[in-house]
Nucleic acid binder design. Structure first.
Lengths: 353, 353
DNA sequence: AAAAATTGCGTTATCGTTACCTAATGATAC
DNA sequence: GTATCATTAGGTAACGATAACGCAATTTTT
């Protein structure tokens, strides 16, 4: 079904049909009705190729995420996925503008946002780690479609949210802790970004798993400065002779693992953390970390870009939430981590008959 | 950069440029050279929208998979993902032709193939469960792009393979067995499709995990007819008093779980199987199954269609292998199974402050 | 009542690519 | 010297959607 066919059926010209379809007025009410009837009856869908050819629309997505080199390269992994998607979609007029910020410095976030909005942006991919500032930024530029990544923001300002359920992630970490350390004792949750939604929810999920189990005593530790956290760990070992496990709610697990190994306490301590960033992978291979929860950062970046593209170029309604599976990584399957990385792929050949 | 611009730079008409770009001859060697130089210098990429508008190409993907209602609905899940992708891509001229077969009947596979190829097909999505027949079919129609799904075929006839590494899956199942049943004893691997590549590789991976562990004795059981397998299980319990775990290498886990519960042996037996099909989900919620490995069937179908589309419509080179992550499902995280299903999504709101 | 503005609709050029149809030019054959 | 052919190249009509423009026929304003 094309505009010309609709025009023929309605006994008008394509110009009139076009004016009806785009609500550009200057059409008699009876004509509008007749045309809309035909459009609905035949379920007319505009030809995407013709439409985009004519409009020669450029679709630029602004990307606001923390510094790529921060957090042990976690954001670089997200950005890898973004780049992969953009590469695939470049011939469909999609491009990006990257703007990094320092998540410990709210002003840098607002600055990044303002800088970005001075460029021509058609959509925004944002990691809403700073809820208030993100809300403020969106209120300042409310007309654009926003995709949230890595972490949800409990509001309906997002077109799509690509993130893992942090509560469930923490809950599952609890289950793994119990499997890996069945005896019970004292267990510690470490948060380095207390105010972050993901952090506190993961901690809540972990506690929730043990809430009815009297054998497991859960302690929480918050840290601010860098050395602070490691020192608190030492203190905990002194206080709790039965300290058997540590759950770090983010990718900083390597910091604490190193200290625990240094203290000679690794043998008695199960360490569970987040994300297969390079240093964590090495730590796991060296036996310093027992379990990692992964949230597939490349996939998140890739998917978020595709959702915005579908909205912007294809005019489709994206899924409101894209839940990221909770991957359990153990030393036994970290070799499969290429499964989690778009840039490598395993070869079937070697295993084949 | 457009064809018109190239033509201007080369001092020829767009018709000539077009003839060069499509190798349609009738151009002087010197002109060809000049035009190709410009094309390379400016890295000319044809406009996808214009190209497809002009060609108004239809891209139909033939889908050959086992009956949707077989294997407890596993293939329906794959097909759900296929449908989701096709829905998104329908406005980009993508459509499918489904052809089901009975994997126990090689002839039905060949018949399905022949039926399919009588229709206008531009690409094929195929589950190569029958290696010889698949090879034969491809050799018969070698010019089309093929995507393999669910299971690899060790040959280079596929444009793209979307599948999980079955060896690693079995290996990880071994690890989970050890975690869930740390005592050791006799453990059984059950295969219902011995000749299937996935089945035998998963079994091999599981055995490999325990290959240097004298505490775990691994026995293999093959079954053909339906009741046969369940009866063999009974026999095994009689023979091995220390039978502590069963690994079923596919989604038929429910069959054996039911029998084991009936025998009153569930308490002493850890049961690990594959795939969150509806019956397995229920079985896990009822405590009949302890661990499932999932291979994200919806994602497989979705991704495979997208890869073929990228090749067919966008003329891009798809990734050769798309490895599917090995998901570990436990009763504690099966509630998150919506994470594995495109059709549901969790709401952040309920958990938010 | 004349001028101005509005309404309703048709016409047409354009986006970049493709494929076909001519039109030159030069070479060869008679 | 003309007819025939091959080679090389230019011209152009689609593909479908869009939006500017044009032109009557009305209605509103002065």
């Amino acid at each position: 079904m094309t505009i010309a066919e609709i025009a023929k059926l309605a006994g008008v010209s394509i110009g009139t049909v076009d004016r009806v379809l785009h609500n550009r007025g200057r059409v008699a009410p009876r004509t509008i009705e007749k045309i809309m009837q035909i459009v609905e009856d035949h379920n007319y869908q505009p030809n995407t190729f013709a439409r985009n050819l004519k409009l020669s629309k450029k679709f630029t997505i602004g990307v606001i995420i923390p510094s790529l080199h921060s957090e042990f390269g976690y954001w670089q992994l997200i950005y890898d996925g973004v780049l992969k998607a953009v590469k695939e979609l470049s011939q469909l007029a999609v491009s990006i503008e990257l703007m990094e910020y320092d998540r410990r410095n709210p002003k840098s976030f607002l600055r990044a946002g303002d800088l970005l909005f001075h460029k021509k942006i058609d959509a925004v991919l944002i990691a809403p780690l700073l809820p208030d500032e993100t809300s403020a930024l969106i209120d300042k530029y409310p007309q654009l479609p926003y995709a949230f990544i890595d972490s949800p923001l409990p509001c309906d300002k997002a077109l799509v949210t690509v993130a893992q359920n942090p509560f469930r992630g923490g809950f599952l970490a609890g289950r793994m802790m119990k499997l890996l350390s069945p005896k019970g004792g004292t267990y510690i949750i470490i948060q380095t970004h207390k105010s972050a939604y993901n952090s506190s929810e993961r901690a809540r999920g972990f506690k929730s798993y043990f809430s009815h189990n009297p054998d497991y005593h859960i302690q929480e530790v918050e840290t601010t400065s860098d050395e602070d956290g490691e020192n608190k760990i030492e203190e905990m070992y002194r206080q709790h002779k039965d300290l058997r496990g540590i759950f770090i709610v983010n990718n900083a697990v390597i910091r604490f693992a190193n200290r625990i190994v240094l203290l000679g306490r690794k043998n008695q301590t199960i360490i569970i953390g987040y994300d297969i960033v390079e240093q964590n992978r090495e730590a796991m291979l060296e036996g310093k970390v027992d379990c990692l929860i992964s949230q597939r950062p490349e996939f998140q970046g890739y998917t978020a870009i595709y959702q915005l593209y579908r909205k912007g170029i294809l005019n489709q309604k994206p899924d409101k939430n894209i839940p990221i599976p909770i991957d359990i990584i153990l030393p036994e399957n970290i070799q499969d981590d290429n499964s989690y990385n778009f840039n490598h792929s395993w070869e079937f050949q070697e295993d084949c008959i």
